[in-house]
Amino acid sequence: MTSELTIRPIQAADTYALRHQVLWPQESMTYIKLNNDETGFHFGAYRNAKLVSVISLFIDGNVARFRKFATRPDCQGQGIGSQLLRHIITEARTQGARRLWCDARAVNENFYRAFKLEPEGNRFYRGTIPYVRMARDL
């Protein structure tokens, strides 16, 4: 049974619970908030009217960065994150961005490669978690 997925703009605060649950559950809620959250574009994917995935897009001139991409664990591997990422790629282009990048958890590198993002530079760590910067032209 497939259910309809709806993607729409949301407020930064609407992303916090999923960011915390999925990305940094061991940290305080304050840890997952960004200083520039209010300047970003935030999107949520809803299934059966429940928020199941979030992503935040920040645009600086012609460069866009997405951050805090989180999908509820019981909803991962179902294409929801892929739909949300495709949505913000289109949104970044619409906003005039010519390049898109993110700091990806290294474990997710192949997922991002499927969207033509390629690693740039060396791995780095946030705590014990390895990351790699990934980017592509739009």
Rank of each mutant, 00 (worst) to 15 (best):
V132L: 08
G77Y: 00
K68V: 13
M1Q: 13
E4H: 10
K33L: 08
G44Y: 06
V52Y: 03
V52R: 04
I129P: 04
G121R: 10
N36Y: 10
F115C: 11
N108W: 06
F58T: 07
G61Q: 09
Q83S: 15
L85H: 00
V132D: 03
R72K: 15
E4D: 10
L85Y: 01
T6P: 02
M1V: 13
T71C: 01
G40C: 12
K50T: 12
W24M: 06
N36V: 14
N108Q: 11
D60M: 09
V107W: 08
R126F: 10
R133Y: 06
Y125W: 11
R136S: 14
L84A: 04
S28E: 09
H42I: 08
M134V: 08
S28C: 05
I7S: 02
F111I: 11
Y125T: 13
N122H: 15
D37Q: 05
S53P: 00
L5D: 02
L18F: 02
A13C: 08
A114K: 15
Y112C: 04
Y112P: 02
P119Y: 08
T2R: 09
R133M: 12
M134P: 07
D14V: 11
L18Y: 01
M134Q: 02
T71H: 00
R65K: 12
P73I: 07
N122Y: 13
V52Q: 03
S3M: 08
A104Q: 06
N48V: 05
A92D: 04
K50W: 06
G121T: 13
I55M: 07
R136Q: 15
Q83A: 15
